[in-house]
Design a protein around this nucleic acid. Structure first.
Length: 604
RNA sequence: GCCUCCGUAGCUCAAUGGACAGAGCACCUGCCUUCUAAGCAGUAGGUUGUGGGUUCGAAUCCCGCCGGAGGCGCCA
């Protein structure tokens, strides 16, 4: 936000160093800590260390750095917009003129509104692939982490200026799917419940029951063994028919799959996720087999089928690596059927050639790391330059306090159940604290707050950390939580409501020419950091960066709220400036929450 | 056996080469006749698993060890 001043000072520093034969290191700027005043800073440690290496100065590095900072300070003189310059502990600190800085920050927020913080348009297209649950199961809290992470990442890169395509890739084939179809057809035909979620969850229960029926037990009798084997034969037969395109089985598959997809679409709706492109595993199955011939022809893949083997890619060997890194990947089974990797290669080709994506992000848990390293490397060998812009956003999976979730055993925390519980808990708090809000409005707010808590809890840990899902922690409304941030928004809104102000667009003359309190200064500084936070979070593919920022901003606002009573400010000009600051804070909180896929309720 | 990730306050997590390692929860002390107390202010809590190395400077980078999780040619 202050590039102009920064550029000017950088130039002066360069001139000074050139004139004095000082080997200047790369200039890195950072905000000055513990300020009651704001500004930016750079240090001279690296430069002093560089100089020491040339043997020019015998002084200890910190001392020499401080000396340089002082000399530079003397050289810069006065700069418009900069009130004073300090040399402290090897750092050069530049402080902004308060009134000018304040009105520039607040003015920019009010002028840009919902676009405050939006990055300049980049001429690159990014596809984010997330929401890849298997059909015929039910959406659990682990899927929710994936969907939330993917959606927030998409929002971040989109806001940072990239053209963004959201892709979902449900797994709609395989033995698990057939297992559910088998038990449905055998025992439960026509017995499905009618509600979307009830039916989706019911399918998950069938899967658990079917798995139990088909699983080998420890001390089973010969009759039980025969029974189990007979069941398994039925299931295999159904799989064979599916594969052969049998009309009845295909119809059953379509119908039951739709039940899962209906539930998925409904949950994505709850999470305000709008997928642009749906890839189904079943649709890339056939095309994926075709690409294998090309890989063999290009001498990337080796066909061991004549010797009873599979089609493999000896990645390390082809690359001339002596140590195990990418290892050997099987890209086609010996019987000619495709694998996970086969399909991902085919899908990547579609993404590159049909959707012309420059970057491709895969939001998938960390257990698939090797799989994606192999996939990306094969794509590179295949000749796709975009392969180097493929990124596996790996994240730790969600477990329950009692251990890993298992769809087979039915030990999962279902998203819908957690969501319903969240609403229930918020409504309870609402009845205690906000009895004045009309009942029908309360319901809507409860879902916004409940979801805010849940979503934030998924975003407030870094990608590579596992989450042990504790419902009481996830649905906490106190402290570092979604509702805490939403509450800051509500309080800002409450002040503006009391002042009866909707917008300052008509009369935007921010006049901060008064003695600003420490709280106002910190709030303005925090707001000014939003654009660079967007950039950082998008560049690093890290929603946590934005989640942390949103909390810090809310925290600063809450402190300001207590320390400075806006409506009781007697001086009218000061009160107006403060109202504009409140509006800028409200807008920034709203923008940050929107990127985090959390709604901003007007009251709570 | 090899590879990847993780180890920071009692607990859950921030800080990824720079200024005194910060938050929340839990504990303790204050603050609602004042714009919403889902809040604020304060106290307390640390040899950043461990031993070396690199650097002017290391929680951060490199190597060893200990502990945990995950992966390693026909599951996804």
């Amino acid at each position: 936000m202050f590039n102009k001043e920064q550029q000017l000072i950088e130039t002066k520093i360069r001139e000074f160093c050139a004139a004095n034969d000082i080997p200047l290191a790369e200039l890195k700027w950072q905000p000055i800590p513990f300020s009651g005043e704001w500004g930016f800073a750079t240090s001279f440690f690296q430069t002093a260390a560089n100089e020491a290496r040339t043997g020019k100065s015998g002084k200890p590095v910190p001392l020499r750095a401080q000396e340089m900072a002082e000399q530079v300070k003397g050289q810069i003189g006065t700069v418009e917009g900069i009130s004073r310059i300090d040399a402290v502990k090897g750092y050069l600190n530049l402080y902004f003129s308060t009134a000018a800085y304040a009105s520039r920050v607040v003015g920019e927020v009010l002028a840009s509104g919902p676009d405050f913080g939006r990055g300049t348009k980049k001429n690159e297209r990014v596809m984010v692939e997330y929401a890849q649950p298997n059909t015929h199961h039910s959406f659990h809290i682990g899927h929710a982490r994936n969907a939330i992470l993917g959606e927030v990442l998409a929002r971040l890169v989109e806001f940072a200026g990239f053209e963004t395509i959201r892709a979902s890739y449900p797994g709609d084939l395989g033995l698990g799917v057939i297992t559910v179809m088998w038990i449905y057809d055998k025992l439960y035909k026509g017995q499905e419940p009618s509600g979307v979620h009830e039916r989706g969850q019911w399918l998950a229960k069938l899967y658990v029951e079917a798995t139990a029926m088909l699983e080998k037990k420890e001390d089973e009798t010969p009759e039980q063994t025969a029974q189990r084997e007979a069941y398994d034969a039925e299931r295999r037969e159904m799989y064979r028919k599916w594969d052969a395109g049998d009309a009845t089985v295909r119809e059953l598959w379509h119908r039951t799959r739709e039940w899962s997809l209906e539930e998925l679409r409904d949950i994505l709706g709850i999470l305000d996720i709008k997928i642009d492109v749906w890839f189904y595993e079943s649709e890339v199955d056939e095309p994926s087999k075709v690409i294998i011939d090309e890989l063999i022809q290009k001498n990337i893949a080796d066909d061991e089928r004549p010797n009873g083997g599979a089609v493999i890619v000896k990645i390390d060997e082809k690359l001339g690596l002596t140590k195990d890194k990418y290892r050997t990947a099987v890209v086609l089974r010996s019987d000619g059927t495709s694998l996970y990797l086969t399909k991902d290669l085919a899908l990547a080709k579609v993404k590159f050639e049909q959707y012309h994506v420059d970057r491709s992000v895969y939001v998938v848990d960390f257990r698939q790391s090797l799989h994606f390293e192999q996939a990306f490397k094969i794509l590179e060998m295949w000749g796709f330059p975009q392969a180097s812009n493929c990124y596996h956003l790996s994240y730790g999976y969600v477990t329950l306090p009692e251990g890993a979730m298992s769809a087979r055993r039915g030990t999962v925390a279902l998203f819908k159940e957690v969501y319903d519980e969240a609403i229930k808990r918020v409504l309870q708090v609402e009845t205690e604290k906000s009895a004045d809000i009309p009942a029908e409005e309360r319901q809507k707010i409860a879902s916004q707050i409940g979801l805010g808590a849940l979503v934030y809890s998924m975003l407030a840990v870094d990608n590579n950390k596992h989450i042990v899902f504790d419902i009481n922690e996830a649905l906490s409304f106190d402290g570092r939580t979604g509702p805490y941030i939403q509450n800051a928004y509500v309080r800002a809104n409450s002040i503006l409501k009391k002042a009866n102000i909707q917008s300052f667009k008509a009369a935007n003359s921010q006049n901060f020419d008064y003695e600003l309190t420490k709280h106002e200064i910190e709030l303005i500084e925090q707001i000014s950091r939003f654009p660079q936070t967007v950039e950082q979070a998008a560049n690093e593919y890290r929603p946590l960066v934005m989640a942390s920022y949103a909390y810090d901003l809310a925290n600063t606002f809450h402190s300001f709220y207590h320390a400075v009573n806006v409506m009781q400010t007697t001086d009218e000009k000061t009160r107006n400036a403060r109202l504009q600051l409140v509006m800028a804070a409200k807008q920034t909180i709203e923008n940050a929450l929107r990127l985090l896929d959390i709604q901003s309720p007007d009251v709570m």
